[in-house]
């Protein structure tokens, strides 16, 4: 099959959605820039014009609210935030407005909105340019949250997000942008709420989000050489969460390591861990281990970044501690 990079897959998904549906438009900082959001929006302005590819002032709160409003009026906006860190300014529109609307008005009016938040970290960018905020948003009822880790899923989940009738937070990660993989040319979807088994195994389940799924696959390959047979689940959607897939795997392996490159406290790893012990406690043969960021802001110095951001070696250590 044809190979595309993760960034190209996003680009193609955006293009195809905009061609397919006139109500889809792109709005946010840097969507006309050659570098601001990587190469993910290259060529869109030329093809669709500035009415549908809207680069904006530095006004996250107002612009996100405008996207919510446009969704209320029947459009399917994709509002882009070049970094999740800047989304805090838009928190109110996302949490109080977009996420609550459908429920609060008795299911009368829905918000078909895609919010694209980009994780961009490393390179000594420090605390305000490194954040992975999936847990904060997953906490909010009424908001779906997806995190693709492969080019195939980057396109498929983007299309699902745009076609969904609810607000969906689509989180892509710049550490994955150059990663190449099979991507069909046609329009296809990856269902929101379904995880996927990347590597089948019987000794331990490694459940990972986003970039950590990539690290988990590397870890599994190294573990295999040492005779440890790890199953890797790329959970892909944080909300809704594919509980059935998680339970099925843990029932088989009895051991669980969760890798999520975000803060540990009240994070996705904590959530998955709680679900497993609540529901299938009897299947567990060892304590559940979490591979996360320490509960500190991101430091600048490379020396500190090196210990701050978890990698495959950290997953391997966690696995070995319960095998």
């Amino acid at each position: 099959m044809r190979k595309l990079s993760y960034a190209q897959a996003i680009n193609e998904g955006l293009k195809q959605m905009m061609r397919e549906d006139k109500s889809v438009f792109l709005i946010g900082q840097g969507v006309t820039s050659p570098w601001y959001v990587g190469t993910t929006t290259v060529g869109l302005l030329d093809e669709f014009g500035d009415e549908r590819v809207i680069d904006t002032p530095v006004s996250e709160n107002g612009i996100t609210g405008a996207a919510v409003g446009a969704a209320l009026a029947g459009m399917r906006p994709i509002v882009t935030h070049p970094r999740m860190d800047f989304m805090y300014y838009a928190m109110d529109q996302i949490a109080n407005h977009a996420a609550n609307w459908y429920y609060m008005f008795g299911g009368k009016i829905n918000v078909p909105l895609t919010i694209r938040g980009i994780i961009n970290r490393g390179g000594e960018q420090a605390a305000q340019h490194s954040q992975a905020l999936q847990a904060i948003f997953t906490h909010i009822p009424g908001l779906k949250v997806v995190m693709p880790s492969t080019p195939y899923d980057a396109k498929g989940l983007l299309i699902s997000s745009v076609q969904d009738d609810n607000p969906v937070l689509y989180i892509d990660d710049r550490w994955l942008y150059e990663l190449k993989g099979d991507v069909p040319e046609e329009i296809y979807t990856v269902p929101i709420g379904r995880g996927v088994v990347r590597e089948a195994g019987k000794d331990v389940t490694i459940l990972a989000t986003s970039y950590m799924a990539y690290e988990a696959t590397k870890a599994a390959a190294r573990l295999k050489k040492e005779g440890i047979d790890a199953e890797v689940i790329d959970i892909r959607s944080l909300k809704p969460l594919d509980e059935a897939l998680i339970f099925e795997s843990v029932r088989k392996t009895g051991k669980l390591v969760i890798a999520d490159a975000a803060w540990k406290t009240c994070g996705m790893a904590a959530e998955v861990s709680a679900l497993v012990s609540e529901n299938i406690f009897e299947c567990l043969k060892a304590p559940i281990k979490r591979v996360c960021l320490p509960d500190t802001p991101a430091p600048a110095s490379s020396v500190l970044e090196e210990v701050y951001f978890p990698k495959d070696k950290d997953i391997i250590l966690a696995v070995k501690s319960i095998i």
């Binding site: 960018q125 420090a126 605390a127 305000q128 600048a300």
Partner: peptide, 8 residues
Amino acid sequence: RGRGGSMH
């Protein structure tokens, strides 16, 4: 202390 870099 090396935690902030140029922006901080």
